[in-house]
């Protein structure tokens, strides 16, 4: 249809700001500058012997260890265990957080009863609960799930509530005039309107959960990426520890990037999704 082509025009126009090739180089290249610089300094430091190799193994040693651990399957099994924990804990915590968040945001009563306590709980770091939770749940899989779920639950509940409360009144009035059913109200007005805020909460939650999980694995577990690092430290094999750090960093970064991509996809309606 001829009219349809009109719709796409402003979007196509926007790209012309800079030449695409320059955009691509700066998009993918610039973020790599800092890691490459660190790697270079690290290499120089080990070659010049600024630090003993027991304290700072060379990048190539770490790379060899990485390949060894990868081939032996240690990384893969550790990572699989950690990712399953994150997945289960996140699913539990996020679902609960979303439900409580909707209730908090939609009902003043619920906010009055629960809101202040939740905000107080949010001040205690998830790991502050660890000794207490260890006594209740003992060591094992449940402890991991509970810590991760708790780390996700609080920020998602709070951000969902905040996002809902900040939906412009004019859209709420539209919903009232059209007498939308409760279900439509939540699915078509409240959640989409709160989505940007919810997603910033989800990203914080996943970050917290990832950190909490690694620490639990380091302190109170016998599997997973975090445990692999503790194991390396007890063996005085700092290269294993560094491999663990790199893996944790990359996986965490990938999860955050995945969430950002999901959000962009869900928010295609925004005029300026770049």
């Amino acid at each position: 249809m001829t009219d349809r082509s009109l719709i796409a025009r402003p979007v196509a126009h926007r790209v012309r700001w800079r030449t695409p090739s320059f955009d691509r180089i700066s998009f993918y290249g610039l973020p790599l500058v800092l890691p490459l610089a660190v790697l270079t300094i690290w290499q120089v430091a080990t070659v010049r012997g600024w630090l003993a190799p027991q304290i700072l193994p060379s990048p190539s040693d770490v790379a060899v260890t990485f390949i060894d651990l990868f081939v032996s399957g240690d990384i893969v099994t550790g990572l699989a265990i950690s990712l399953r924990r994150i997945l289960v804990g996140f699913a539990l915590g996020a679902t609960g957080g979303l439900v409580l968040g909707v209730a908090l945001g939609r009902s003043i009563r619920v906010e009055q009863y629960v809101g202040p306590s939740l905000r107080a709980i949010a001040q205690v770091p998830s790991l502050g609960w660890l000794p207490f939770l260890m006594l209740i749940f003992g060591l094992g899989e449940t402890l991991n799930y509970v810590v991760i779920a708790k780390a996700c639950f609080v920020p998602i509940a709070l951000s969902t509530a905040a996002g809902i409360r900040n939906i412009p009144v004019r859209y709420i009035e539209v919903a009232r005039v059209l007498r939308l059913r409760r279900r439509t109200m939540v699915l078509r007005v409240v959640l989409p309107g709160a989505l940007p805020t919810i997603f910033s909460g989800v990203r914080i939650a996943l970050g917290h959960a990832w950190i909490a999980m690694v620490v639990v694995e380091m302190l109170a577990d016998t599997a997973g990426v975090g445990y692999m690092m503790t194991w390396g430290r007890t063996l005085f094999q700092i290269d294993i520890v560094i491999v663990g750090m790199v893996v944790i960093g990359i996986v965490g970064f990938a999860m955050d990037a995945g969430l950002r991509a999901t959000e962009r996809r869900l928010r295609q309606w925004t005029p300026d999704h770049v």
């Binding site: 004019r170 539209v174 078509r188 989409p192 309606w269 925004t270």
Partner: peptide
């Protein structure tokens, strides 16, 4: 039915 001064279409639909 009402048409508001600003159109108030929901931007995500």
């Amino acid at each position: 039915g009402i048409v508001f001064q600003d159109h108030r279409l929901l931007p995500w639909l």
